[in-house]
């Protein structure tokens, strides 16, 4: 047979990326997993348990990770499944705004523009608003709007058809905007 002849001016294809070690995935993905679990509705008190479970799954399934694919959607997909399981087993925040325990972290009872809220207060507000979303929409919304993961990557991570991702994202945006409106209205009543 003929030996391959290098063509001048034609770059060699890059070697496939190597699979990361578990340690590197842990170090680089821990913050993402932590925030994602919280945004998926895992309560603060349960975050360590859920993160622990995520990384045990990561360790077991690392050989299924495709190094050429982005890491964060893969981790988000695992976090989503753990959050779903945790929802059944652990204490989770309710998904509705029926409770009155909102915005306790706000220092002042008086309403004000977001610009006057601290970042921590704004985060508490966002998480509270996210609680209004069902998990299937919430997960897509978080991955798209907060993690800025592409639609196809979300579809792959959550094993959903792409059209479903877009549909859920559209509905989730409506839900989130409505939740923010309701929270602000409630806040203004105080």
């Amino acid at each position: 047979m003929f030996a391959p002849v290098p063509l001048p001016g034609v770059p060699k294809p890059a070697p496939p990326p190597s699979r990361p070690t578990f340690e590197s995935v842990y170090a680089e993905g821990f913050t993402h997993v932590w925030h994602t679990l919280r945004r998926f509705g895992v309560a603060d008190a349960d975050l360590e348990d859920a993160a622990h479970e995520v990384f045990v799954v990561v360790h077991r399934r690392l050989d299924t990770y495709q190094p050429e694919r982005p890491l964060r959607p893969w981790l988000s997909g695992i976090a989503f499944r753990v959050a779903s399981d945790e929802r059944r087993r652990l204490r989770l925040r309710p998904e509705t705004l029926s409770t009155d325990g909102d915005l306790e972290t706000r220092a002042s009872g008086a309403p004000g523009p977001e610009e006057q809220l601290s970042q921590a207060q704004q985060r508490a507000f966002v998480l509270r608003a996210l609680d209004a979303l069902p998990l299937d929409r919430r997960s897509v919304f978080v991955m798209s709007e907060l993690d800025e993961i592409s639609g196809p990557d979300i579809a792959e991570a959550l094993a959903l058809p792409l059209n479903t991702v877009y549909s859920r994202l559209r509905l989730a945006r409506q839900d989130f905007a409505e939740a923010v409106r309701r929270l602000r209205a409630r806040e203004g009543e105080r």
Binding site: F30, T31, W34, H35, R39, L47, E114, E115, Q119, Q122, R123, F125, V126, L127, A129, E145, L146, E148, R170, R173, Q174, F176, A177, E178, V180, R181
Partner: peptide, 25 residues
């Protein structure tokens, strides 16, 4: 998107930006 009929895009984006900048655990 225009879906956000109740809230201004800028207001929602500001909230989301705060959450994106969440500090590391």
């Amino acid at each position: 998107t225009p879906d956000d009929s109740h809230e201004s895009n800028a207001g929602l984006e500001g909230l989301l930006a705060a959450e994106r900048a969440a500090p590391a655990p």
